[in-house]
Write a protein that binds this DNA or RNA. Sequence first.
DNA 1: CTTGCGCCTGTTAGCGTTACCGGCAAGGGG
DNA 2: CCCCTTGCCGGTAACGCTAACAGGCGCAAG
Lengths: 341, 341
Amino acid sequence: MKSRTGRPAVLMDVAVLAGVSTMTVSRVLNAPERVRAETRARVLAAVKELDYRPNHAARQLVTGRSGVLGVVSIDTTLYGPASTLYSVEQAARHAGYNVSIASLSSLDRTSIREGVERLRAQAVDGVIIVAPHESAADGLRHLPPEMPVVAVDAGDDIPVPVAKVDQRAGAVRATRHLLSLGHETVRHVAGPADWLDANDRIAGWREVLEAAGRPVPEVLRGDWSSRSGYQLGRRLAADPEVTAVFVANDQMALGVLRALREAGRRVPEDVSVAGFDDLPEAAYFWPPLTTVRQDFGEVGRHAFHMLLDRMAGAEPEARRMVEPELVVRESTGAAPGLSRA
Amino acid sequence: MKSRTGRPAVLMDVAVLAGVSTMTVSRVLNAPERVRAETRARVLAAVKELDYRPNHAARQLVTGRSGVLGVVSIDTTLYGPASTLYSVEQAARHAGYNVSIASLSSLDRTSIREGVERLRAQAVDGVIIVAPHESAADGLRHLPPEMPVVAVDAGDDIPVPVAKVDQRAGAVRATRHLLSLGHETVRHVAGPADWLDANDRIAGWREVLEAAGRPVPEVLRGDWSSRSGYQLGRRLAADPEVTAVFVANDQMALGVLRALREAGRRVPEDVSVAGFDDLPEAAYFWPPLTTVRQDFGEVGRHAFHMLLDRMAGAEPEARRMVEPELVVRESTGAAPGLSRA
DNA sequence: CTTGCGCCTGTTAGCGTTACCGGCAAGGGG
DNA sequence: CCCCTTGCCGGTAACGCTAACAGGCGCAAG
């Protein structure tokens, strides 16, 4: 019977207006079928009239659930993490969840824990971790056990379910493609050593080379940036033996492309280049980049549903792989001296 | 005096262990200076021993504050929004806030409200809106008045404080630069009509042309994607009169570059191209792209601090502009027939 | 020696919601 | 005709925390 002006309406206000108890209002909101249709209608009308909104905090206090999911992620400025975050958020929204983020600036082994802690302090119901790092794996092994967690693109030896793109398979496809064009071997510009994807891609590349009995050249390590791709590309361009390069992401591939061109080596006539990711821009590189498409959206959706399972108490499968797809464009071609001898 | 095993510790557990009242524990956590050092130490020890974590919901229920900020944003996959989001998150974290996101998939005029509503239901303390759209402006005019809101890159005629990059100034710089190279006029590939930035950039471009008494050609409208840049670029390439193009973002510029090259028109010898944004990749386009750098991080930080002011009850300045910077690289050069006649 | 003031700590009363149990009416079977 | 089930609804007690006030103690001033 409080003054209904000013302060937002609470359950009691609705109850009074509808002439029922607060419990009934609560039921209308949470289990409508347990209330007679007529009463329900009256309550709903009151809710509408007062523009009532449930108090999240009060509800959470008593139920223990917050309806908020956390995502801890490295640099959400990068295309991959950003896309994953986006699709997680979309999926979460449709299921009635909100999403909080904790971006990691540094990657020391405590930062993952710190991110999870921050989210936990905010009482999220579950956490998705997007941090494809060795050091992240380390952090994943020391998590509060009662917290439902799912990882994206993590390694195999961690105690949480993982959703990921089959990086190795992607690398295999790209490398096979290059070999099938007649190249004797394939050079590889990889990502940083502590990135799991980088290492998976190396593994796939190496696997194909070894299986085909080809020489396995030294791996060049970049940092995912175009700049590093450019620098490494100059080294490659200086070596006339190089006819095919598999680059671990599209940004670096852009740098490689530029280095090659500056050195007067034509793509794909002299050197073939394949990337990884299939950025929206990749089709407009010069030449249009052959690359491996990862469906980040799919990964995000998988991760979300696996988390939902875990939150429901079920033990979801330990791993969910998304198949990447080779997209052949114009940056790869027959090995020099082959088609036109 | 409850069993301390299993269930996480609550304030009372800490109080009992430290031999004080719950109120004292609460004070140690929220206003340490109001408790004697000795007592404080005892409490802190108990907190540590029990691994106590304050219950967010309970605190929020009584204080009315959640310590969570909301960001409603269009497609966080795009570089600009992603960067802004990232810097907001960083700034918020350092100030002890968490951030929740609400990405918008569509841009109808209700979606902004919907996003804000969702965040409001989650009881965020304030909201930053990243939606540089006409329709967004519409949504911004109908917000719950008690909710502190700050917008990023919004228009001028809205009732909330705005942090933004001075798009018009950026366009002015790019266009002047092109004119100063001797080009008779400058074509413009713009972004979608309902994007404010797109229109601001058009305005800056037009302004310079008019001030210089040059013809103002028809604007070409893209959708920010490389694909659209490519398509529009082909139209431009077909017109031999075209010697300078100012493109409203780097992705489209990439497409334009490719279209020009395919048509046999050299950049910058035949046609100069300038972009906008300065993506990390822009320096590795071919040729390296002259563009206008926007400091999204700065914008995000401004937005956050303005929001903080609003939440503190202060009325922050209505607008905070960040100056963009022209980065001259190799995609722009003297007008043909000028330097080498 | 008393009075008053500050410093520190405790007591009480909610914040808004849902869980749990209990009650009451209507309807069906014995 | 009575008892028991079934369907709906209400009362009460938490959930874990902090605001507001109250009180005890020591010390300085009168």
